[in-house]
């Protein structure tokens, strides 16, 4: 640290600065009789008094600063540091709170979405089930009606076919009687029966 600046160097500096001061004084006739630097006039009793007073003033200043003034500054700086830290802490807490709130909101949204989707699916299923049962019932009724209608149609056809034979037999008898003057009812009936059977309508 100060080793490169030995005593000799500092004394040289002192000497040169003093010499410079005296030199710049230009060899002027000074009012003071000493002729040198007043700082080096150690015979002056004020010199020692100055140092003694300096020690007193410096000591009092140190006491006042160390015990009154500086602790106040320390407390103010500490207060500020704590305030800033507290604010940061509060901000961090608020952020955490906001994060949890956001997460809760997201959770709630997801849950609501899932719920609604489940409800939609359920409703859809129920509707489909209902529709299918209705469909089945309708199909069954329609099949029943179709069956009944077919039965009716077949009976109607049977009766119609029976009526057809009678009409045909009667017509054939009438035509035979007109043409031949003979009444051969049984033979005609057999012929008609045969003809109908041949046409597949018996």
């Amino acid at each position: 640290m100060m080793k490169p600046m030995p005593l000799a160097g500092m004394l040289a500096l002192l000497a040169t600065s003093a010499a410079r001061a005296v030199e710049t004084a230009g060899g002027a006739m000074e009012e003071t009789s000493t002729g040198g630097m007043p700082q080096l006039d150690f015979s002056n009793p004020l010199m020692l008094a100055q140092v003694v007073w300096m020690l007193i003033i410096f000591g009092v200043l140190y006491y006042v600063l160390a015990n009154v003034a500086l602790p106040r500054v320390t407390s103010v700086l500490e207060e500020r540091r704590q305030r800033i830290e507290g604010d940061l802490e509060a901000a961090r807490a608020a952020k955490a709170e906001a994060d949890t709130a956001a997460r809760a909101y997201q959770d709630a949204t997801a849950k609501a979405r899932a719920d609604s989707q489940a409800a939609i699916a359920g409703a859809l299923q129920a509707a489909q089930a209902e529709a299918s049962t209705k469909n089945e019932a309708l199909n069954a009724r329609l099949a029943e009606q179709i069956e009944a209608a077919e039965a009716r149609i077949s009976t109607a056809r049977d009766t119609a076919m029976a009526a057809l034979r009678e009409v045909a037999t009667d017509t054939a008898n009438a035509m035979v009687t007109r043409l031949t003057g003979l009444k051969q009812e049984s033979a005609t009936a057999t012929a008609v029966q045969r003809q109908l059977a041949a046409q597949g309508r018996a």
Binding site: T24, A28, P38, L46, A49, Q50, W53, M54
Partner: peptide, 30 residues
């Protein structure tokens, strides 16, 4: 003349009280 050094001279401060206890103007500025 140029008197560059007399500015460093010590004198009494605070009047006769300062003179009695050798209180200098240097100490006054302290």
């Amino acid at each position: 003349t140029i008197d560059a050094l007399s500015q460093f001279e010590l004198t009494h401060a605070l009047g006769p009280v300062g003179a009695a206890v050798n209180f200098t103007q240097s100490n006054a500025f302290m």
